[in-house]
């Protein structure tokens, strides 16, 4: 039974990731890496390119609108797969899918599980695209230069992987928000607005000098992401950041799961 469920999740994840979505997301990530300020900095390694491109918005005391659109651009690729998949799911076959799963809640569980897998896989693909882009333009080394645990300036290997993980977490959180509003309204535009506006709002609020506590608030809870790899820098200590981001994701999963039985999925006309 468990094996069959796992097989089903893998099947749905595969449906999330057709070849053209993989190519599109990788192209978007590669182009963004090429246009990033980090790309032209001397001494940039492949690791630091990945860590900077997927590791959050540029850090300034006052985040301007260009930084906001840049980070929004980074977050758009995972949305493409979900939009394409949901359109194919929400058609006439939804009733059969619900029947096969037994209930709306079970259907939602399998959808969320495959969405999580999809987000992680797509992040890896995007990381690979950025790495290849850097490699073909002459960058080398998967490490980042930084302070290690003993306080020496050294090569460290985990920041690129960590950036990719937190990127996947933030993407998953925003995809959950998109999914919730899409299922609630039945309209892609409403879902997209629900995806875009929190990012813009959180980043611009987070750099407001009149709301001094807001910087920590939005970073802490994963909406505006900038983790510090060592203490004393800007950002949030890693363990609290991850813990809170996972908590937010769990909360959103629970909320969608609780409300799904009340949403009129099959009663609504196809848009």
């Amino acid at each position: 039974m468990a094996k069959q469920k796992l097989k089903m999740i893998v099947f749905y994840t595969r449906a999330f990731l057709p070849l053209h979505i993989c190519a599109l997301a990788m192209a978007m990530a590669g182009i963004r890496a090429l246009a990033s300020p980090q790309f032209n900095m001397p001494g940039t390694t492949l690791g630091s390119l990945v860590a900077e491109t997927l590791g959050g918005h540029e850090w300034n005391m006052f985040i301007n609108i260009d930084a906001v659109t840049d980070w929004l651009l980074a977050l758009l690729p995972p949305l493409t797969g979900l939009i394409v998949y949901m359109r194919s799911v929400m058609g006439k076959t939804l009733m059969f899918s619900l029947y096969r799963h037994g209930s709306k809640a079970k259907w939602m569980t399998s959808l969320q599980a495959s969405m999580l897998l999809y987000t992680l896989l797509l992040t890896v693909l995007m990381g690979l695209a950025i790495t290849f882009t850097g490699f073909f333009t002459g960058m080398r080394g998967l490490h980042v230069f930084g302070l290690d645990q003993s306080g020496f300036y050294n090569r460290i290997w985990w920041p690129p992987l960590f950036s990719m993980f937190t990127y996947a977490m933030q993407s998953f959180m925003l995809l959950e928000i998109y999914l919730f509003f899409y299922l609630l309204s039945g309209e892609v535009s409403i879902g997209l607005i629900a995806f875009v506006l929190p990012v813009i709002f959180a980043m611009l609020r987070g750099s407001n000098d009149e709301l001094s506590g807001s910087i920590e608030w939005f970073i802490n809870w994963g909406m505006s992401k900038r983790y510090s790899f060592s203490s004393g820098e800007y950002g949030v200590p890693v363990k609290y950041g991850i813990l809170r981001q996972v908590l937010v994701n769990l909360g959103l999963l629970g909320l969608t799961h609780t409300l799904i039985p009340y949403l009129p999925l099959t009663e609504r006309k196809e848009p």
Partner: peptide, 23 residues
């Protein structure tokens, strides 16, 4: 042939072209 995907791609092209041209 997908309204949602077209919308996201328009947004992505707008932001990416703005970033590239501003650099």
């Amino acid at each position: 042939q997908n309204a949602g995907l077209g919308l996201v791609l328009t947004l992505a092209i707008a932001y990416q072209s703005n970033a590239v041209l501003q650099m």
